[in-house]
Design a protein around this nucleic acid. Structure first.
Lengths: 339, 339
DNA sequence: CAACCTGCTGAATACGTTTGCAGATCGGGC
DNA sequence: GCCCGATCTGCAAACGTATTCAGCAGGTTG
């Protein structure tokens, strides 16, 4: 009993052909006669043979591996991985597997210099960059990747790079705000970061403003409250809003996490939702369905997004060009807005 | 400008040494003189050299890669990845990275024959198996892995295999139930699967019974309701309980998801929590902190668990023996039990 | 002074695959 | 009968690294 894994040479010997023919048969080359191929495949199956990826990779200069770099929100607890990216990750690994690519996953601290993780591109044919915000100035980092000749795609701003797949955040903001207007709200607050650092949230804010103006409502600066992408911050922002005395009957939180915070603050203040105030979020986290009242929100199709990311990346690897791909958001109506 | 990545030969040439010496220097061999090593490392840095993992792997017969196989709960929506395993995954990749291992991730459908994915062990030095339940009869699959000489660890029942790292579910069930008793509850319902298929939930149930008996309470079969590990099922089970007319003042749900369902059912039935009924869950999902009332639950230390899984796996890879490792659960007290 | 050790370095080889090239076989056209 | 193309197969050369073995210098010992 041989303890070592069989090699293509073992198969060749058993099949009475050369090792080269085995390799060709396994790679479905038209150069080998169908009956020979069958015989070889049979024997390979019987011996439980698998090509050695290291050897194949060495020869072909490819790893058939995609690396996913997941940038964590520094504001979030390290142990709380954003479920949205988890769904994306799940879709990515599935699609990659379908296309016979393996997926390498690495969780990155934003604070750490991830340029060091170029190293991972050593192992992978391409990179998928996942995260909210600008990854601490990703423009320069991306330029560095370009310069290094790396293949990569990124979840994010589709208007800035053709390597991006991203949600139409402006449209999402428009949809959310329009829905609030549709259910009769006029004084709608916006919760979220509007700084340069979070282009997604800014785009949602622009959609918010556009929807208001379209309805003939002047956006009120007093209704725009900054908040970080965590529950506590959404709660604090809502408390500030409540204490400020500014009148409002709706809240559009730029993320579900902040919306959860808003719900909590309103409950504490005994403001009934959705009777007095409607609340809408963004992301459709699983928890949006658990909380009370369940959260109306804007969903991004993570399955499609993951598939596009993988597809575009593989195209890049194969030397083709790609265009940025926009994911169209979708309104998910639950209880928190009423009707 | 050379477009190709530099090889150890390029470094050797630049440093005026042989390729062998470069290889030795990079691997910190004591055979190379410190000053020579420094010179080589300098040049390697300057040329942005990285060892080719395929070549190194081919030579050493190792990939320095760990594969994580994540088995999804068939009862759950495919897009809803259990956050608990996400936390575990995050910890695993971090620890692996610390020990200079890469992490390959693959989401597996339970229905698909994952033995086929042994293939992945071709790419990885070891396997980490993650999932609830028995993975559709994992005992046989594990035996197959053993036979194939694969290195693997598994999240699960520590009493059944030394390859396991797992929570002391019995202790967790005991803690949860004891807490309910401590806050004055006597008629405590248990929500969760008790079939063979979910050993975790059964162990929690045993802890529940033991705690009751320790307090001099006879476990009432009418208070044990079967439920699947999803919100809807927890809700349905609670509704059944409510309609049955059986008196109860506490609910121990074997998972947070089911506990969320219980909370929803109780709210719908206008049963105040925790005034009339205390509810406790298991897992400490992030959402446990968002829902209202926030959920008292039992936390498993995912960071530690991930670290142990990786550590034990690497030990196995290095030919050492390992013992199963038990993670001690911890009570997280929030609002849903009162005091 | 020979023999020997110590501390370092280089030449050469093997890891298992893919693939360019050349050769073999065979049927058919002239 | 000869040549030619079509089809298949084998030979051999990479790919970049880790490692064995031998060698060399310089110092120490007998």
């Amino acid at each position: 009993m041989k303890s070592d894994r069989p090699t293509s040479r073992d198969i060749a010997e058993a099949a009475g052909v050369s090792q080269a023919t085995v390799s060709r048969a396994l790679r479905d080359s038209p150069l080998v006669r169908p009956e020979t191929r069958e015989r070889i495949l049979d024997i390979a199956r019987k011996l439980n043979y698998r090509v050695d990826r290291s050897a194949a990779g060495l020869r072909t200069r490819q790893s058939r591996t995609l690396a996913v770099l997941l940038f964590e929100d520094t504001t979030a607890d390290a142990s709380h991985v954003n479920p949205f990216f988890m769904r994306l990750l799940s879709s990515i690994t599935r699609q990659a597997s379908r296309l016979e690519y393996d997926t390498l996953v690495s969780f990155q601290q934003l604070s750490r210099d991830w340029v060091a993780r170029y190293e991972i591109s050593n192992r992978a044919d391409g990179l998928i960059l996942l995260g909210y915000g600008d990854y601490r100035g990703y423009a320069e980092r991306l330029a560095a990747l370009d310069e290094a000749g790396a293949h990569y795609v990124i979840w994010g701003p589709t208007d800035q790079t053709s390597h991006a797949v991203g949600c139409d955040n402006r449209e999402g903001g428009w949809m959310a705000t329009s829905h609030l207007i549709d259910v009769g709200r006029q004084r709608i607050a916006f919760l979220g970061i509007s700084s340069e650092q979070y282009p997604e949230f800014r785009a949602r804010y622009h959609g918010y403003c556009a929807a208001l103006e379209h309805a003939g409502i002047e956006p009120d600066p007093a209704l725009r409250i900054d908040a970080d992408n965590v529950v506590e911050s959404g709660q604090a922002a809502t408390q500030i809003l409540l204490r400020s005395g500014v009148e409002f009957d709706g809240i559009f939180a730029a993320s579900d996490l902040m919306a959860f915070g808003a719900l909590r603050a309103l409950r504490t203040a005994r403001v009934p939702v959705p009777d007095k105030v409607s609340v809408i979020g963004f992301d459709d986290l699983p928890a949006a369905d658990y909380v009370h009242p369940s959260l109306t929100t804007v969903r991004q199709d993570t399955r499609l997004a993951g598939e596009r990311l993988v597809r575009n990346l593989i195209r890049l690897i194969e030397g083709e060009n790609v265009a940025a791909h926009v994911i169209v958001p979708e309104l998910v109506i639950r209880e928190s807005c009423g009707d």
